[in-house]
């Protein structure tokens, strides 16, 4: 690639000759960033995810680190591949999966993984039911993830200290081995709740020591969730009327305080139910002598579609997430 042409150092120098690398030699870092189009991915992340400022900052930091590491490698300053395994912590619906997809793309564009696909799994995909079942299952998943990113959601379920014969431990050991030996071949991202992840790491120091980057995903604020709702509604080709917009705000206020809140996921579920109620409202209208509906009617969610939610019934009877 073009960046290589600008590299003036002998890039094939082995690390043992590091001392002989001329400090004055230069590498065009900007070209590495430009040619990999990595900023495009970062911008996309900015656009498609509302809020999450600290996450976006972390991802930019990691991207910068990856680009610099590549530049260092070009100049012979870096020999062993960096450990790139990550941990994304945060509550459900805070964008971990989406960010993992973008992360895979960044890793791919900067040349850290060859294919850039994401294989997303949970404990059930890795751990078997009987003796001899787990290793092939875990290996099968690892083989499919090679060249890309293995995203393990709720990774702490792999470890069940209450059952000493749990096969999860076997899976963890295989994972660890591959995370160590196949750094060039895949990046593992563990994901889950912050506190449970910490517990998991404290009982699995081997895993903890192999995770180079921790990214914490904060919950969304009320205005962010409302903005997310707006984006989702227009992506579905619907819109809020003025009252509905306000009702959605109330809804989020209430829902935030109730159990099982899952951030963007709860917003999406609420909207799905609002669409059901809207359909029901239009349908009832036909019976009530309003047989013709306009395109506008078909795509407008009104306040009543939202305010009918059970969230408003009682302070503690939650709309299901």
């Amino acid at each position: 690639m073009a960046a290589m042409a600008l590299v003036t150092a002998a890039r094939l120098l082995p690390l043992t000759e590091e001392a002989t690398v001329d400090d004055a030699k230069t590498v065009d870092l900007q070209a590495i960033v430009r040619d990999s189009n990595v900023t495009e991915v970062l911008d996309q992340l900015d656009r498609e995810l509302v809020g999450l400022a600290p996450v976006k900052r972390r991802i930019r930091e990691i991207a910068a680190y990856l680009a610099v590491t590549r530049a260092r490698k070009t100049l012979g300053l870096e020999a062993t591949p960096p450990s790139l395994h990550m941990c994304f912590t945060g509550n459900p619906g805070t964008g971990k999966t989406t960010v993992a997809l973008r992360m895979a793309e960044i890793l791919h564009r900067l040349g850290y993984v060859r294919k850039g696909h994401v294989v997303s799994v949970t404990r059930d995909d890795l751990v078997g039911q009987y003796i001899g079942h787990t290793a092939p299952k875990t290996k099968e998943v690892l083989k499919r993830a090679m060249g890309g990113v293995l995203f393990i959601d709720e990774a702490y379920y792999l470890y069940r200290p209450e059952n000493e014969r749990d096969y999860g431990q076997e899976s963890i050991e295989i994972l660890l081995q591959v995370m160590e030996n196949n750094r060039d071949d895949l990046v593992v991202i563990l994901a889950g709740y912050h506190d449970r992840m910490n517990t998991f790491f404290s009982s699995n120091p081997g895993m903890s020591s192999r995770i180079a980057h921790h990214v914490d995903f904060p919950d969304y604020s009320q205005p962010e969730l409302l903005s997310i709702a707006g984006k989702m509604v227009s992506a579905m080709n619907y819109r809020f009327d003025a009252d509905a917009q306000q009702a959605m705000g109330y809804y989020i206020d209430r829902r935030l305080t109730q159990p099982n809140f899952a951030n963007a996921r709860s917003v999406r579920n609420a909207l799905d139910r609002a669409r059901l109620r809207q359909a029901n409202r239009l349908f009832a209208g036909v019976g009530a002598g309003r047989p013709n509906v306009t395109a506008d009617d078909l795509s407008t969610l009104s306040a009543s579609d939202i305010l009918a939610s059970r969230v408003f019934d009682a302070p503690d009877s939650a709309d299901k997430t």
Binding site: R114, K143, R144, A145, M146, G147
Partner: peptide, 13 residues
Amino acid sequence: MFDLKDAAGALME
């Protein structure tokens, strides 16, 4: 091995 994206998995095997 079906559905592999990359050779590394097969090489590992």
